[in-house]
Design a protein around this nucleic acid. Structure first.
Length: 483
RNA sequence: GGUCCCAUCGUCUAGUGGUUAGGACGCUGGCCUCUCACGCCGGAAACCGGGGUUCAAACCCCCGUGGGACUACCA
């Protein structure tokens, strides 16, 4: 029996994979791979009203897209299945019986309205809102009467009045006073297990050795440890990483903008860039490196490097990383990844000359921050999409620009199509005729040739575009300038 | 309100008693390519406050202050 690390990522299929959850998955995954352990995927779908199998599918897809592959999970099985909580109900039932038989759990007949009332009273009294234990000591007769009245009981755990202490692998020693906690529900009145109950049973039965999750679970850990003890299970090690925050320093949520992995994918972020960024958020890698491959991340990962305070999500840095990864990606790969974005921009890749497209991409690659920007960067290579931007118009209207454009255009008109490096010659000609140089020389040429003020190296653009196209554009610009 | 967690440049972080407090994003100056960008070289920019402990505290302790999470028959 090996005692290899076993960790799990246990999302509930109630929405698209959130970057916060993706980061939790990443930490677990890196930990497992670093330790040579197993990474388990478990679906927590006990809330039937909120769970949706469509989300379950998208969850797995997003995880795969990110490259966070699992060793055991609902789709591939494993020695500790099933990996969906909805398929493990008999297990929860059996464990509930154990607790009830040991008098560690009891039925609670309170309605949600009654509980809400109790909660409000406590809040008004400035006390910790918690269940005060109304049903804890009901007699058999009272229970029967309540049941006879049609009430469906939930089941609560008898919280022991003890102090819970544990050593968090990221935050050090943590302690909770059991005093402050009310008996909590472990099985809902509809028969479904509550989160804290199911998690404990599953983590134990799946032989999970380390629970790595967000700090929002810190207080749950105290409850869960009580359950471990009541059930006679040895608790795993716990590590609570910090949360991802929005610009306002509150937990990152939809109102902060893009927060799901799917959104970033659709915006044209590369999975390796997102992963890399998430690994840097609220943590750092040994050696202080910031751009790392998956293998390097695994190698340099350590829970001890995870920070304890919340980390603000910085989209600027993500974009910087994404641009860096795009530059690193081979043109062939990039072309493949770009395909859906080209279509979305109205291009039909299959109708374009492959070699030419590759050329275009090569000249434009360095300009891209996200894949979705591709359209805006390559439209200048299509005459039917070429047009002068307002900025370009303004620049061309400035004094000095018309001389440059005129001279450059004139040269193009007289040049033989196969007369060597026409671009260089035309620039030289424009420089001599207009006396402009540097910025004053190149910007008007850029504006006229591409319609924009920013873009790839002009000589490359010119080469890809061809003399004909360039000639046409200069004629057009000259006309609008009245030259 | 209660419980718990946290606190280094605007942001992400390095730093574990002695450092000119380092790096990255962003911002910014310059160089490069006769251009924007890329790249390279510089710059501005931080130890929340107050008490201790110590010869010496960003680092250890306490108290404030500030921020966050949780406070569901959601997970």
């Amino acid at each position: 029996m090996e005692n290899k690390a076993r960790v799990r990522f246990a999302p509930s299929p109630t929405g698209e994979l959130h970057v916060g959850n993706a980061r939790t998955a990443l930490f677990n995954w890196m930990f497992a791979r670093h330790e040579g352990g197993r990474f388990i995927l478990r679906i927590e779908d006990t809330d039937e009203s909120r769970s949706d199998s469509a989300y379950q599918t998208s969850l797995l897809e997003d995880l795969k897209w990110l490259g966070l592959t699992w060793d055991e999970g609902p789709d591939i099985g494993g020695g500790y299945g099933p990996y969906r909580q909805s398929e493990r109900l008999d297990l929860y039932e059996a464990h509930l019986k154990k607790l009830v038989d040991a008098d560690l759990a009891y039925p609670c007949y309170c309605t949600e309205e009654e509980l809400e009332e109790e909660r409000q009273t406590l809040i008004l009294a400035k006390r910790m809102p918690r269940y005060l234990g109304k049903c804890r000591n009901l007699s058999a007769g009272e229970r029967e009467a309540l049941a006879a009245s049609g009430r469906k009981p939930s089941c609560r755990f008898k919280v022991p009045r003890t102090t819970i202490e544990f050593n968090d692998l990221i935050r050090g020693p943590i302690r909770f006073e059991g005093e402050a906690m009310g008996d909590f529900i472990i099985v809902r009145s509809n028969g479904m297990p509550a989160y804290n109950f199911a998690v404990v049973i599953d983590d134990h039965r799946m032989a999970v050795t380390h629970v790595i999750r967000g700090e929002d679970h810190l207080s749950n850990t105290a409850l869960q440890i009580m359950l471990y003890r009541a059930l006679g299970f040895e608790p795993p090690a716990f590590a609570h990483h910090c949360l991802i925050l929005g610009k306002d320093h509150a937990k990152l949520s939809k109102r902060h903008g893009s927060v799901s992995v799917g959104e970033f994918r659709r915006q044209g972020f590369l999975p390796e860039a997102l992963i890399n960024y998430l690994g840097l958020l609220g943590s750092s890698f040994a050696g202080g490196r910031e751009i790392l491959s998956r293998d390097e991340m695994i190698d340099a990962f350590s829970l001890s490097r995870a920070s304890r305070s919340g980390a603000v999500f910085d989209e600027d840095k993500l974009r910087w990383l994404n641009a860096a990864y795009i530059r690193k990606t081979s043109t062939e790969d990039l072309l493949r990844k770009l395909e859906p974005f080209l279509r979305a921009a109205g291009f039909r890749p299959e109708t374009l000359d492959a070699a030419w497209l590759k050329n275009v991409l090569e000249t434009v690659k360095g300009e891209l921050t996200t894949l979705a920007e591709i359209g805006a960067h390559i439209d200048l290579f299509f005459d039917e999409r070429y047009s002068l931007s307002d900025e370009a118009r303004r620049l061309l209207a400035a004094p000095g620009a018309r001389e440059v454009v005129g001279a450059f255009g004139d040269y193009l008109e007289r040049a033989e199509d196969n007369a060597g490096d026409i671009y260089a010659a035309a620039i030289r000609h424009a420089k001599e005729k207009s006396g402009a140089k540097g910025r004053d020389l190149f910007m008007p040429v850029r504006a006229a040739l591409t319609g924009k003020l920013k873009g790839p190296e002009l000589d490359r653009v010119f080469a890809v575009l061809g003399v004909d196209s360039a000639r046409g554009r200069f004629q057009q610009v000259k006309k609008t300038l009245g030259i």
